[in-house]
Design a protein around this nucleic acid. Structure first.
Lengths: 253, 253
DNA sequence: TTATTTCTTGCTTGTTTATGCCCGATTTGG
DNA sequence: CCAAATCGGGCATAAACAAGCAAGAAATAA
């Protein structure tokens, strides 16, 4: 593991746990405590954390940064998102859904080839503004605030004019027999429209979402082509989904 | 294998694995470590990755965080924005343009009554997500990155279906005789469409923008109803604008 | 075609960096 | 206070590095 890579991991762990111990880190990262101590010293010098006896603490954050950090960075969602990246190919047009998992995906998109991203989420769009190699298209419509995305008739009309090579959806509930579902009717309709317009449907969701059901059905599970999830998934459910024709991708732990 | 080909492979591997090691690459790609080192150096120079001891890491990330942190609020623009707020009335539908001045306006909108905000800017939309009393509508279309806004035929078509009580535009250049102008053609067309759909046109711009001209004309200055600017404005220009029928609002110092 | 130039690559050399280990000093928690 | 954990600095070593050189490939000119 590279030194920088280790530094990033340490900062990741720090922001997740709120504190890190030197001994613990040396075990997790498979290096000596001396190295960890040097790492922590460097990170402290770089003002990226505050060194204390036995480990390190996060720096005092600014107000909105604090809020931003606190709002998200579920490590599980990030891992699922990262596992989905290889399915994006050069010159494709893909749709990125709203939701924290897709936001993670957006923040880690490949930078070295060109493709087009369409999104109903102003948040996702904002994250991609500085990404030079993508063409970015925003879906218009009334913003449904709980999901931070454009929804409804206008959005659906615009969607029907676009054909996607793939769509990436952060799922709310997926049941082998009952299909994909969600708790808001308009959202369900927009998702259904997205799926109709997509060559390949890629669902992202932690194991917690599998076998669950929500109020409004979006589509049958066989409409999905690929599910990216984590290793805690119920094997029985996965097998049922495989029978429905889904390819399953398990993210790294 | 060609050099270029190798570079692409390296970037591929990097985006898949999240990191690459020089030694590992020299084995995989069947070249000496020196060559790999030179490759990595070139790719780093080209800003396609970040070289570190032992290998390389993806670039990207921290970019928007960095940007946001260093995005200083121009106090002048903020004052101009604040002076425009009283012109928003209850139950109106207003359009908020892209640009830093309108972003300031967005962050200071009244919270005690209801109205509708339409915007082509994902940045403005993001700032308004947590604002409970407004209905938020996003304009769709291809994002023009330099201006961070949706532009073009799709955007204009969507605009033509909406009637605004007022639009708030951050202006680039306003000349009494030559009218309102801007440096991008598509942006000019979209602005013109916005103005056509608006009952009242409110222009926000510091004194620096007055008497100036840019490449593409948007409209004559008499199409504007109100100009909000600062006290350093050239009195002569202001008089000419008043003759054209504009109301002038000078912000506090 | 041949000659010349430019690029690319691998090798050699000496240098720098990252890491683990050791040991005396410091801090921590009873 | 003590004992254990943690720390800091010095040292050794192996890996990674930068720079220069020469051979061969590719591009260009004659």
């Amino acid at each position: 593991m590279l030194q920088q890579e280790r530094h990033n991991k340490i900062l990741d762990l720090l922001s997740q746990l709120g504190r890190v111990y030197a001994t613990e880190l040396s075990v997790t990262l498979q290096v000596s405590e001396d190295t960890i101590r040097r790492d922590l010293k460097q990170l402290d010098d770089a003002k990226l954390l505050r060194r204390v006896h036995g480990g390190a603490l996060p720096l005092q954050q600014e107000f909105d940064e604090y809020r931003e950090r606190h709002e998200e960075v579920d490590p599980l969602k990030k891992r699922v998102a990262l596992a989905a990246i290889p399915f994006i190919k050069e010159n494709q047009t893909i749709l990125l859904d709203s939701g924290t998992t897709c936001l993670q995906l957006a923040m880690n998109l490949p930078t070295h080839f060109n493709f087009t991203v369409v999104t109903p989420s102003p948040l996702v769009a904002t994250k991609l503004i500085h990404h030079n190699n993508i063409e970015l298209i925003l879906l218009g419509g009334k913003i449904f605030k709980p999901a931070v995305m454009a929804l409804g008739a206008t959005t659906n009309a615009m969607l029907r004019k676009i054909h996607f090579d793939a769509c990436f959806l952060g799922i709310c509930a997926l049941h082998p027999n009952k299909g994909l579902s969600i708790n808001n009717l308009d959202e369900a309709e927009t998702l259904a429209t997205i799926i109709e317009q997509s060559e390949q449907v890629i669902a992202l969701g932690s194991s917690l979402k599998l076998g669950k059901m929500a109020t409004h059905k979006v589509c049958d599970s066989n409409k999905l082509d690929l599910l990216v999830t984590d290793s805690n998934s119920d094997q029985h459910i996965l097998n049922l989904l495989k029978e429905k024709g889904l390819q399953i991708e398990i993210c790294a732990d």
